[in-house]
Design a protein around this nucleic acid. Structure first.
Lengths: 112, 112
DNA sequence: ATTTTATTCTTAATTGCAGTAGATATCAAT
DNA sequence: ATTGATATCTACTGCAATTAAGAATAAAAT
């Protein structure tokens, strides 16, 4: 693999940040990903993935504006770097190529 | 992310096994994946991923027939289980949905 | 028959991602 | 002041990912 490597979970978090755009902060990313994966996630796992990816240059972050909402610490809003989008696209292409080269049988298709 | 328990690298190896069909043994998987990823891999990383995935029920294995080639140990041929194909398809669907929900701008597209 | 070369798998040890548990911070409502 | 809701941060543990060296098998060369 690569030096600038992305883990499986990190990739999902990164894609979610890209999808959420300006609303990409820890707790909201957690909600969105829980909906999509249909399973419970811990906030900590998201936060540590975000932190790792910021250190590796996949994300930048800045504190969000104060909201009219009830309370809580200031939101840390994340944003994908162009490098992140490149890497995501590379991985998508590699997987797409692999899928295209898999000769699926009729019985395989039934199982899926 | 507890349910699937399939790592980033494991998924790539698993897809390669599915693509190679009856030729899916360690060294050949290494060659194929090196070509696709355009980077060098160690044999050990492939072998340990294969072993882990067999223990987890994603793969089965059996020794291959003798060949006309020069020498070497007996090949251990791997085969994906139906469970593996299901999990792979689930992951593909989740990523595809995420990609669909990413609003790419013109400048994003240029960078990719 | 012994050595060399080619091919493949195995094991041991290290690094770093994934996930848990709990602490910390902020503000509204009671 | 206490409770409840919203949010981040940190320290820790398990296991996936990777490296590096070694062991096993067998054809080909000598």
């Amino acid at each position: 693999m690569k030096k600038t490597k992305l883990g499986e979970f990190e990739e999902l978090v990164l894609l979610t940040v890209a999808a959420l755009q300006h609303d990409a902060y820890g707790v909201e990313i957690k909600r969105e990903l829980e909906t999509r994966l249909k399973e419970k996630l811990s906030v900590g796992s998201i936060q540590s993935a975000l932190k790792r990816m910021e250190e590796k240059g996949f994300l930048t972050s800045a504190f969000g504006e104060a909201t009219l909402k009830r309370g809580g610490k200031r939101k840390r809003i994340y944003h994908t770097t162009s490098h992140a989008l490149k890497v995501l696209e590379e991985m998508r292409a590699i997987r797409a190529d692999l899928w295209r080269s898999i000769p699926l049988t009729a019985s395989d298709l039934k199982m899926i």
